[in-house]
Design a protein around this nucleic acid. Structure first.
Lengths: 121, 121
DNA sequence: TAGAGTGTTTAGTATTAAGTAAACTTTTAC
DNA sequence: GTAAAAGTTTACTTAATACTAAACACTCTA
């Protein structure tokens, strides 16, 4: 990699929207809340550096009050929680995932619904 | 990390079993087939170094004629294919995975079966 | 009994991801 | 028009992952 414009643009958009009503969302203060340097955040927002690692992105999403999966997806990263979930069932879950590949979002959601029903079996 | 005895032991076991009937499974020759140095393989098999990255583990599994998920799981790594699958459906699949967390292997397999049936809907 | 082949040890290196400090420029508020 | 605050730039750093080359020691066999 070497920068990600879409992630940076979206991040700046979200941060500046928050800044309109809350002065702790300046670049410098937001960087500090997230736990990164202003230098780094500036470069990330302008798409010059790669997005930070997943944990920091999740922290950003929490502070900005958005779904972390949106930002993670723009950053092309995976929530590390998912890796843990998969490692807990290292044979069944890879099989499931390979099976649902090729299904549409809607079909996957139907399946998720069935999983919920199955819980009550 | 700093070494993984279980992975190393299993790897050596599998390689030595193959070696009994096929002389290309010496440590040096196997290392070359996999694309790593004998130095590294020696340390990995004795649990002194961490397992190689996922791609090399998959190559090993292929050469050793075993399921790559077994070795990946011992190495505590995830098949990079799964990350790709998740990134293709970055909202639906995280939801599905978080939902199946806590389900038993058997329940997950039932669900995989339903995915197969759903394909014919 | 030496040469070929085996695994091992010593002593590192290469690559990538994930950043930082400090000085600088620009903007804002007064 | 200046002080404070905001964002940016230049020039590097740090930490982790994933390894390697070369020399060594042991074993086997011809």
């Amino acid at each position: 990699m070497a920068g990600n414009k879409k992630f940076g643009d979206r991040l700046r958009e979200l941060r500046e929207a928050k800044l309109k009503t809350n002065p702790v969302f300046t670049l410098r203060k937001f960087a500090e809340s997230v736990g990164i340097s202003p230098t780094f955040l500036s470069k990330v927002e302008r798409g010059e550096f790669d997005p930070p690692k997943a944990e920091k992105i999740i922290k950003m999403a929490t502070l900005l009050d958005v779904d972390s999966d949106e930002l993670l997806s723009l950053a092309n990263k995976m929530d590390p929680e998912l890796e843990e979930i998969i490692k807990e069932k290292p044979t069944a879950l890879p099989d499931l995932l390979r099976h649902v590949r090729g299904m549409s979002e809607a079909e996957i959601r139907k399946l998720t619904q069935r999983a919920r029903e199955q819980e009550q079996d």
